[in-house]
Write a protein that binds this DNA or RNA. Sequence first.
DNA 1: GTCGTGACTCGAT
DNA 2: AATCGAGCCACGA
Length: 108
Amino acid sequence: MSEQNVFDQIYAMVKCIPKGHICTYGQIAAMVRPGMPARVVGYALNCLKENSGVPWHRIVNKAGAISYAASRNEHDSLQHILLEKEGIEFSINRKINLEKYLWRIIPE
DNA sequence: GTCGTGACTCGAT
DNA sequence: AATCGAGCCACGA
């Protein structure tokens, strides 16, 4: 277990996100490894399979909006639906209240 | 061993 | 206010 691939670490982090909460790319990237750009997280999720058991839909950008994945072929609405099923509400502009749903891994 | 790409983020215009 | 460009690291071929 020592040095798993960064991808595996990211997947583990996403799996740790409790239901009803969300996380941002930069947040996870910083937790997996400081200094790591959020792009790596997005790239990891891009290679992720929907049956991998990773709640990728709980990952949103820092703006609190859903990243539009051209590779996913307009499946952006899918993430929106999944998040709503989790109990997360969207603003009128399709944005989420990060302060309300953003999952903080570091408890105070 | 080298090159290119990527579901991001930030700053400036 | 919204939009554009550039840059960070990691993986694949």
